[in-house]
């Protein structure tokens, strides 16, 4: 699978170079675990293609492999923006199988999930290095955004000069604090939303078209 993926990606890279103007931009959905990345990816995919990207879960690290949804056409203001969405595993600096034991999982499954999640983080970081043209950074607005992971990832994204849209997710929850997210990264625009409830998706799509069109 690695070989095939590698070959396909290589071919895609070559074609990207040839038809750069016409190819859809590949937008990575990044963020810490359980921020709602897959929920957002599914929301976008369902809204514009009718299909989902992957299963959502309350359990952290449900997404352990980057999943791509290609040719998502988003219409805004009479124009169409086509993007490829890459839903990436949640990025973290530590993965411990014990955190899965609370989610009705036996030790063997938890250890395997932990290993796969670690591989997923490695994959997500690799994608960030060379395979994405823009980033949607999803944060859980009920949690403190001042973390090493967020600071480091936003720093990498900025150093790459990638266009980045920061989303403050989970505004449907009472503990949501969008201001805290906006204050953490004042150099970027922050858009509040609830991917689960579909709140404020109009503005999200407008910003996606603006940033990545």
């Amino acid at each position: 699978m690695g070989l095939l993926t590698n070959l396909r990606d290589s071919i895609l890279r070559v074609t990207d170079g040839l038809f750069a103007a016409d190819e859809p931009k590949r937008i990575g959905i990044y963020g810490p675990p359980n921020a709602g990345k897959t929920t957002l990816a599914n929301r976008i995919a369902r809204d514009w293609t009718g299909d989902a990207v992957g299963p959502e879960s309350q359990v952290p690290h449900e997404t352990r492999r980057a999943r791509r949804k290609e040719d998502v056409e988003i219409e805004r203001n009479g124009q169409t923006v086509t993007i490829d969405i890459v839903d990436t595993p949640g990025v973290t600096t530590k993965v411990d199988y014990k955190e899965f034991l609370d989610h009705d999982m036996d030790k063997e499954d938890a250890v395997r999930r932990s290993r796969e999640a670690t591989e997923g983080v490695a994959e997500a970081m690799h994608w960030l290095r060379e395979d994405v043209d823009g980033v949607i950074y999803v944060l859980d607005s009920t949690t403190d955004p001042f973390t090493q992971v967020n600071t480091m990832l936003i720093g990498i994204i900025e150093s790459q000069d990638l266009p980045a849209l920061i989303l403050a997710n989970k505004t449907d929850l009472s503990e949501s604090d969008v201001t805290q997210i906006a204050n953490a990264f004042p150099q970027h625009e922050t858009v509040p939303l609830s991917a689960l409830e579909g709140e404020n998706m109009d503005e999200v799509y407008t910003k996606i078209a603006e940033y990545f069109g």
Partner: peptide, 14 residues
């Protein structure tokens, strides 16, 4: 330990 990992994000990225 088995099932417990620490990741250096910069190293993975680089």
């Amino acid at each position: 330990s088995p099932g417990t990992y620490e990741l250096n994000l910069m190293e993975l990225y680089d």
